[in-house]
Write a protein that binds this DNA or RNA. Structure first.
Length: 243
DNA sequence: CCCTGATTCGC
DNA sequence: GCGAATCAGG
């Protein structure tokens, strides 16, 4: 297998989207996890939380390491999302760490567009979820925090993977692509990276945040007291593991 | 052991 | 440039 333009593109998108090297390798097929990592490095797109390098730190750095990941800003999909540290930390209840998926990989936010983009073969999985998220509090900029796990349909079951590889860009033409991202538009991912209709929200952001007001409400959820939390939403990228 | 990503190094 | 082997943390 050679690194064709398409394969490189897919690798790049998935890598930046937070997929693990294994997932990417599996997705691409014909290459090993190592090959993916090697290629990613050669492409110059490393810089991702590595279990090894994460702990690697000179002795001088007074770290205060613990809150590092926990207090980190919510699920940044791609590219470093500016942390709303200043404003966010001020109010009594700081924006809570988003549903931390697992430990190691920094998983992007639960994509799951509320509105299914044209999903032709999509059978109506009629999510019973009624649109009445319990508002817990109001965040800076006016976005409404919801209770954890109380977003509308928590996660529309990673929509059936579409097996349409070649589909240049008929319907995605006016959608917000990775290349269209800038500081002013919402970078909330819609759909799954690598799929033909994957795109980003594209609305105007809630000033000071990487997402629009609506998605801020999803990204920054109010923290509930321990004890009655809901299980974290599943990871993006559909069904990574196939064992 | 399983998983990660990083690095090395022969090809 | 490529990727298996190796390393090292979680």
């Amino acid at each position: 297998m050679s690194w064709t333009e398409e394969r490189i593109e897919k690798l790049t998108k998935m890598w930046e989207g937070g997929a693990t090297a294994s997932q990417i390798a599996e997705e691409l097929g014909g290459v090993s996890r190592n090959a993916v990592i090697g290629k990613a490095h050669r492409l110059g797109l490393k810089a991702r939380p590595s279990p090894v390098k994460a702990a690697e730190r000179s002795e001088d750095e007074a770290p205060a390491p613990k809150p590092a990941r926990a207090a980190a800003p919510p699920p940044p999909p791609a590219e470093p999302a500016p942390a709303p540290a200043s404003q966010a930390a001020a109010p009594s209840a700081a924006p809570t760490p988003p549903p931390a998926p697992r430990a190691a990989p920094v998983a992007p936010p639960p994509p799951a567009a509320p509105v299914q983009a044209a999903a032709p073969a999509a059978p109506s999985d009629a999510p019973p979820a009624p649109p009445a998220p319990r508002i817990v509090s109001v965040g800076p900029g006016g976005f409404l925090r919801q209770g954890p796990g109380e977003q509308q349909a928590p996660i529309p079951p990673a929509p059936p993977r579409r097996l349409v590889p070649a589909k240049p860009s008929p319907e995605i033409a006016d959608k917000t692509s990775l290349l269209d991202l800038n500081d002013r538009i919402c970078r909330w991912p819609m759909g799954h990276p690598g799929e033909p209709d994957f795109h980003f929200c594209g609305d105007k952001v809630n000033p000071g945040f990487p997402y629009c007001v609506e998605h801020c409400g999803r990204a920054y959820q109010a923290q509930l007291p321990r004890g009655h939390r809901r299980p974290p939403p599943p990871l993006p990228f559909g069904n990574p593991r196939v064992r």
